[in-house]
Write a protein that binds this DNA or RNA. Structure first.
Lengths: 392, 392
DNA sequence: ACTGGCACTCTGTAGAATCGAGTGCCAGTA
DNA sequence: TACTGGCACTCGATTCTACAGAGTGCCAGT
């Protein structure tokens, strides 16, 4: 708790207007900042090391290449830039990107085409939650051309709305649970002997009476009915529900457009390991969760603790309904990614998705969200462009 | 050699667009076959062009490298091999691979480790169908180190076992349909005004009466009850069900281990396009379906019509329960893939998966499968090794 | 405090030389 | 006739050199 708070605070300090303090993370002077910005934007665009000459021509840098060189040397010394080799241009480090997104990035704007895509998507999408989430992940990936991740609302605090036992095979029934957030869980219950539909109905009624209104985690034992078959069925169902809860992911994840990562890196091995990460849904969820919990909207390189993703950056935006956590959307790309656009896209899609979920589920009523410390809701540091330019 | 000729004939049937004219293709004599086999196996192992010297040392080829060279030249002329460039070894063509799997491949055997993995997996897996399918795709991918695809039973012929309306938000209900094969479909129904739980219950009862026992596609209209609210609710639900059926994929697909494809090709662009294909579940399903329908268990290169997969091979095995189609499992890898192992793995996993599904659903009763021309069930041509060796 | 200029370093490319794997062909042999 | 050993040849891969170009660091000059 304290840790997270301090993290957040220290981050905030580095924002304009924040306390100057003893902050090791340094305010670069305006010129250095302008140079860094030029390097980052150029490198994001071209993926080529950037030389002093290019930078000297960049708008906002009105000095000669020689001066730029000495400033770049200083920036390298301070860890914002690196040279792949002597006599190549320079490349931003993770620290450089970090400074860029925190202080330099102008609030990204989506192109009209993308904006339109998002608009149309949310106008037209309707129907089922899972499908919506899945299609949203595709949308986000298309709009940004990075891999997108959409995490649905966690339903570990949702309560049971309905429980039902449905006979499937002669010795198999299906227990179907509908939760208050619209999620449906199901699991087979295997039986010793054939169960009549009356028995199933009786069991369903009892389950309904016992469980509706409680979270799935609460499963008070049934008192014996005296009827052996019924007691047995109820006991088995209870076990099935327990397993359901035990194994089930508390939230759904959808990954859109992972193939776009293939072209993002040159080393095949990198591609492979990043894709392998994306296959592990649990990891993906906790990755996004971690980043959000730290109050960040961007994690660059090794800032999240997952080594295989060291050459990736993650952009996250929360999804909230009525001010409460209802999941997250994220983007995964190379560290050299277009942060302004990615942030803008994640932000708007996250917001619209929240609205959409709210619409469907009916704001504020009967809609149980994860109990928890409402999101930090850190304001993205956006309007900071004049830091780098202006006064000079 | 008449035997080989007959094999060829049967192959022609299964391979429409193939040989121009009447059977330019080939009974290869025993020695050519042995050489082709040596090239294929060597190339599968090393991914390097194979020279005459290596082949001459292969077991079953008891001639000098010079003779091998002339035979290889002939095989190249006939289209079984190619040279990447003069003075490199040779590589099998798709046609070469095809001959190999049809006539030369000895029945593949899994390693003990893999066999054990499969064994343990099916001993231990239980619970829910979707989860089982998903985990099966992972298993198959791990066992073979290719990307795996598992297609679940199609439930377009399943009948409705239960329909229920559950209130979620003030203006939202969820219609939950349980099908006879254990699948659960759901969709939101949006309401004009708040619906009481009595109303929902009444509607559920009517839905149940009307729809249970019929396939989802059949939705007879409801006769008016006189109660406006109820009629309205039923009408809306009917629309929701229609949309549910319209958009829903008739079967579920799970792709396991797509990241393994990254290392399978050297060209990044190839990786990207293959992954992009795998993201389109509909395409994946119809790919497997096509291959199976043509009575094949392997499709190499362009044999399936999907150009982006021209450098891939697909291995498919049907999943059947009680003799009826219950889906398929498949493997996707480079054309230079280890066909014997892949076939063995797909075969055994498909079979075990079928048994598993059968176990859970209760063989033969209440279990509605896709009505259709029970699978061709073509026997894999396996025990043909002596064709290539033996008599000499 | 900045700038122009210069020497230097390093990559990438192009060309030449070399190596070697592998082929095709041919003459010789069982 | 069917195979083999041998030989000349081809062509990719590797190495080396040379060189151009991009970029830097530094310094002297304004």
């Amino acid at each position: 708790m304290a840790r997270a708070g301090e993290r957040t605070a220290s981050r905030k300090v580095s924002h304009p207007g924040g306390a100057a303090g003893e902050d090791t993370a340094p305010a670069l002077d305006a010129r250095k900042a302008a140079i860094l910005e030029a390097v980052v934007t150029e490198y994001i665009g071209t993926a080529q090391p950037v030389g002093s000459h290019h930078v000297a021509q960049a708008p906002g840098v009105d000095v000669s290449s020689a001066t730029v060189r000495s400033e770049m040397a200083a920036l390298e010394h301070e860890g914002y830039l690196v040279q792949p080799h002597t006599s190549a241009g320079r490349i931003p480090t993770d620290k450089g990107y970090r400074f860029f997104v925190d202080h330099l990035a102008t609030p990204g704007v989506l192109g009209p085409a993308q904006r339109h895509m998002v608009q149309r998507f949310f106008d037209q999408v309707h129907g089922e939650l899972e499908e919506t989430l899945e299609r949203t992940s595709r949308l986000l990936s298309e709009v940004t051309s990075y891999a997108a991740v959409v995490v649905g609302p966690s339903h570990d605090a949702a309560t049971v709305r309905s429980v039902q036992l449905v006979g499937i095979g002669p010795r198999t029934a299906l227990v179907v649970v509908v939760l208050s957030d619209g999620a449906v869980e199901k699991r087979f219950v295997e039986l010793d002997e054939e169960a009549s539909s009356e028995l199933l109905a009786a069991a369903s009624a009892r389950l309904q009476a016992h469980l509706v209104g409680r979270p799935l985690g609460e499963r008070p034992p049934f008192e014996p009915t005296g009827e052996r078959a019924l007691d047995d069925l109820l006991a088995r169902t209870r076990v099935a529900l327990a397993e359901l809860e035990r194994r089930g992911e508390p939230e759904q994840v959808f990954v859109g457009g992972p193939s776009r990562l293939a072209s993002a890196f040159d080393a095949v091995e990198t591609v492979r390991s990043v894709l392998a990460i994306l296959e592990q849904q649990l990891v993906v969820v906790s990755l996004l969760r971690d980043v959000l919990d730290r109050g960040l909207s961007v994690a660059i390189g090794t800032e999240h603790g997952y080594e295989p993703l060291a050459s990736c950056a993650v952009v996250v935006a929360p999804v909230s309904v009525d001010g409460r956590d209802a999941g997250a959307v994220g983007l995964l790309g190379p560290t050299r990614m277009d942060y302004p656009r990615a942030l803008a896209a994640a932000h708007v899609v996250g917001e619209r998705l929240g609205e959409r979920i709210g619409d469907v589920l009916g704001l504020g009523s009967g809609w149980h969200l994860r109990a928890g410390e409402g999101l930090p809701r850190r304001r993205r540091p956006a309007r900071t462009g004049e830091n780098a330019r202006g006064d000079e």
